[in-house]
Amino acid sequence: MDAMTWFSSPTATTAALGEVGYLADAATATTAYLAGALEKPLLIEGPAGVGKTELAKSVAAATGSSLVRLQCYEGLDEARALYEWNYSKQLLRIQAARGDDGSGPGWDETHDDIFGEEFLLTRPLLTAIRRDEPTVLLIDEVDKTDVEVEALLLEVLSDFQVTIPELGTVTATRRPFVVLTSNAARELSEALKRRCLYLHLDYPDADREREIVTSRVPELDDRVARQLVDLVVRLRELELKKAPSIAESIDWARTLVALEVGTLDQAAVTATLGAVLKHATDIERATRELKLA
């Protein structure tokens, strides 16, 4: 898949993403189109649960591409992000080469043998770079990593190549469509941001969220959908530990359908609030503020 064929236009991007269930607004569709056309990584920032990760998955689904995901976390290192050697297998090969009496080849003769493809464990970054088929590389929650990993990403995303001392430089023959997501837990470096197109995703307005919910849960009554979204908007205005995400709105909708709820009255809200709020203190606050008790 060449640079200009991920999507043919922003309008085509909207249509293609819509076919796999992702309702993209104009800014999202345009930026996703440009990320493919310009072969630039796309950095998406915003609160948790607004569709950042889902956009990467939807691009992969809409284009028939493979998805390679690097889930970031504190303490992630190069071995887990890029590659490492299968040390156990290397040791077995060395022992087998030396033989029971130790008369086999020495280290100099064995070295080149054990640093080959057979012993290489590729991690997400190297896996995505080496693939010949269309690939979407999702680097999820990059703000959770250390600055050392951010420096590694700078190197990889600048030239889409990786140098393995024992094997040489591996350069991407087909650049992946790269999506980095961030919940803005920490400020990312300007150097990383310069290499990316930028998109900020926030919670959608009520009309758009209702459209998303009903597209995912079409059996939900329209009146109940309106009541649900109105309540979710009110919940997000409270000082909660974890504001409801779009995914949780969808879960709540599915819960109401399963219970055959015809109207989202006080009793129904009280009985199902655990589908959308996941902390006891949040449920207590919501119950108090929305006067559900």
Rank of each mutant, 00 (worst) to 15 (best):
D205S: 07
R175Y: 00
T135R: 03
D143W: 05
R223N: 09
L240Q: 06
E237S: 12
D143M: 05
A151T: 08
V147L: 06
K193P: 00
E150L: 06
L125E: 02
T171E: 13
T214H: 02
V217D: 08
D222G: 04
T145E: 01
L157I: 08
V224L: 12
T163E: 14
E237T: 10
N183G: 09
D159S: 14
E150H: 09
D251A: 13
S249N: 04
V233T: 13
L157H: 07
R195E: 01
A225Y: 06
K144C: 03
R123N: 10
A172K: 08
Y198G: 10
E148D: 15
L197A: 13
A206D: 14
A128L: 04
T145L: 00
V149C: 02
P204E: 08
A243D: 01
L188G: 08
T145N: 02
T181M: 10
D221L: 06
P176N: 11
A225F: 07
V229L: 11
R210M: 11
Q161I: 03
L188V: 05
S245Q: 10
V213S: 03
S189G: 11
P134Y: 10
L197E: 10
Q161L: 08
A185V: 09
L152T: 15
A184N: 15
L167Q: 12
L228P: 09
F177C: 02
V224D: 03
V136G: 01
A172R: 08
V142F: 03
L197M: 12
D146Q: 09
V224Y: 09
W252N: 09
Y198P: 00
T122F: 00
K144A: 15
D140Y: 06
T171G: 00
L228D: 09
N183W: 05
A184C: 13
D230P: 01
L192V: 11
L235C: 12
L137I: 00
R195Y: 00
T181Y: 04
A184M: 12
R226I: 00
A253K: 08
E219N: 11
K144V: 02
T135P: 01
D202H: 13
I250V: 15
V224T: 07
R254E: 15
W252H: 08
D132G: 15
